[in-house]
Nucleic acid binder design. Structure first.
Lengths: 144, 144
DNA sequence: CATAAAATCTACAGACATAATAGAGTTTAT
DNA sequence: ATAAACTCTATTATGTCTGTAGATTTTATG
């Protein structure tokens, strides 16, 4: 049930971009890497993936960098995690975004599937309803 | 966020043991393997792990097999998953059973940690409050 | 006692995923 | 022209996952 480093770094970087008050909204890879203690070349790949998923925009060349593709309240943590770590569902037969049959004779009466459906819902209830703006707010107010 | 095959097979086997009505409560590896379509030698390791964790008892020799160490209502799915797949927490800094610091400068104000704490709670709210007896009940009543 | 059924234990192997690292290429401001 | 910055592809090292193999121990039973 664990989040990969890729997912963790990606979330940290996006939260950094949503909360960084250092002036312009455009930020360089190496600055995020330094602030968040992430290997720069690894972060490079991660941000590129997030860009290709439409969550980030970028500007090349001198003075370039990354910035959020939408306002922080429009980007959910669920989108970020799915982009970097794949489906939230513990088993694919309860995935909304990437369903696959899991081979049990009858999915309607499969006990495992019923419970895993609940787990999937519980996870997505948190990650899909929490935006970067929500995270920023909680950080300011010290974690309510 | 996914459940390993080991975890899936272990859960299926435990649910099988909790619901099997074929006569005696003691069941052989190969019977479970056949019913649940699990490679027998792999299941062997899994059941041994569950036994060493105190969730199963066994009897060697002719007429032997495995049986639940407690009644189905006393075994939660959380115990099974933790035994086979490790901590439920997405990141170790929010794990109850296996806490480790994750290196953020201040855990109290770490946005990622706040959210992952909620995810951990959501997962354990499902898995730690659902027993094998609960699963058996839902299977009979067709999934409420 | 011999035999077969069954769990126990250890080792290993192949495939895949993870977590990076490397380096060449492209775009852009100055 | 130069340097800053993103882009893209490949490669590597490590580990985990999934499973297989085989030898060992325990026990019921004829």
């Amino acid at each position: 049930m664990r989040l990969s480093k890729r997912g963790e770094y990606g979330l940290r970087a996006m939260i950094d971009l949503a909360t960084w008050e250092g002036g312009s909204p455009i930020v360089q890879i190496k600055d995020i890497a330094e602030r968040e203690h992430i290997p720069a070349k690894f972060l490079e790949q991660i941000l590129l993936t997030l860009k290709n998923a439409g969550l980030l925009h970028s500007k090349m060349g001198v003075g370039g960098g990354y910035y959020l593709a939408k306002t922080p309240d429009q980007i959910s943590l669920g989108q970020i995690v799915r982009t970097l770590d794949g489906p939230l569902a513990p088993v694919r037969c309860v995935s909304q975004m990437a369903y696959e049959p899991c081979g049990c004779p009858d999915e309607q009466t499969c006990g495992l599937r019923m419970v895993m459906f609940d787990v999937r819902s519980a996870i997505s209830d948190v990650l899909d309803t929490t935006s970067l703006a929500d995270v920023a707010l909680r950080m300011e107010s010290g974690g309510a």
